[in-house]
């Protein structure tokens, strides 16, 4: 049984299709990245999974249960929306104590102390949350989301509105928590770099449809054609070298970037032939490495294709 299962999910609002036949699964213990542009239907998917909205068609399960109909099953799930779910007028500890009461957390005082220490807010435990920075509120929101040791936690844009330092802090926290608490993390994010760094599996949603769904490793490696980056000892040779390799039958394309040649090969086994051709033409090679595409390139390829109308 998967931690999250979405089968043929569709939903529309006011005759506008938001989700169309969306299907994917998330395995236990995975950090899953759910990507897509604004309005793609990411938050709608999370709301349907959490039982806040009804699916138009298809079905969803979290830990094999329908959270809309099962109050007890919701105790096994945590969630962080953009607003953190905190009251500004209550202290950090009181906010956590409230949710501990709702979720029936055992020994709440010890758990609250543990989490406040983990997110670095132990010295602010009695301060009103309204006095906290955005980053501190987000960290407290994450602590709140995992207070009851959920098996699955949904994080909706956890890095949104944070400065780079705070983003990194939140990212490290997610990885640490996933490891420590052995949770499945469903991460809804715009930050592609963040997703590439911490997620094991990714789904890309655009215009309500899943455009790609695979492990990050497979997505970034499977470019269709293998690519190679070649750094030359003399950077001034790049344009000429590009002309040379561009005429080779096993090279599909070559670009001379700021610091290296980027060659796309028609044949994945042709890397030694490429190197031999460059050396044979008198170029001195400093480094050759197989390139993989970034998640950003893959994302833009899928989303751009949709936005471009292709």
């Amino acid at each position: 049984m998967n931690a999250v299962e979405v089968r043929g999910l569709s939903r529309s609002f006011d005759d506008r299709d938001i989700l169309r036949d969306v299907s994917f699964t998330v395995g236990h213990g995975e950090i899953f990245g759910y990507l897509g542009p604004n309005g793609a239907g990411k938050t709608t998917t999370i709301r349907i999974l959490l039982g806040l909205l009804a699916p138009g068609a298809g079905n969803v399960r979290v830990l094999g249960r329908d959270l809309a109909a099962d109050d007890d099953a919701r105790a096994r799930v945590g969630v962080l929306f953009e607003n953190n779910g905190l009251s500004d007028r209550m202290s950090a500890a009181d906010n956590l104590a409230y949710y501990a009461g709702l979720y029936g957390v055992e020994d709440p005082a010890a758990r609250i102390d543990e989490l406040l220490a983990l997110v670095g807010l132990a010295d602010r435990r009695d301060d009103p949350v309204g006095t906290f920075s955005t980053g501190m509120k987000r960290k407290l929101g994450i602590a709140r989301a995992i207070l009851h040791r959920p098996e699955v936690v949904f994080l909706d844009e956890p890095s949104s509105g944070l400065d780079p330092g705070a983003q990194r802090m939140v990212r490290d926290l997610i990885v640490e928590l996933s490891r420590r608490e052995e949770m499945t993390v469903f991460l809804n994010s715009h930050h592609l770099d963040e997703v590439q760094r911490i997620c094991s599996t990714v789904a890309i949603l655009a215009e309500g449809r899943i455009r790609a769904f695979d492990s990050v490793e497979n997505l970034t490696a499977a470019s269709g054609r293998p690519a190679v980056t070649v750094a030359l000892t003399d950077p001034g040779d790049r344009a000429r070298a590009c002309e040379t390799v561009g005429s080779l039958p096993f090279v599909a394309g070559c670009d001379a970037d700021d610091d290296a040649l980027r060659c796309t090969l028609a044949d994945p086994a042709a890397i030694p032939d490429l190197v031999a051709a460059l050396v044979g033409a008198g170029f001195r090679i400093e480094e050759v490495r197989r390139s993989s595409r970034s998640l950003e390139e893959i994302y833009l390829e899928h989303v751009g294709r949709v936005e471009g109308g292709a």
């Binding site: 806040l52 919701r74 799930v77 607003n83």
Partner: peptide, 14 residues
């Protein structure tokens, strides 16, 4: 208005 109700609706409370 704050949106915190959405988080509360996800709690194991009817």
């Amino acid at each position: 208005r704050d949106g915190t109700i959405e988080t509360l609706l996800c709690a194991p409370v009817s």
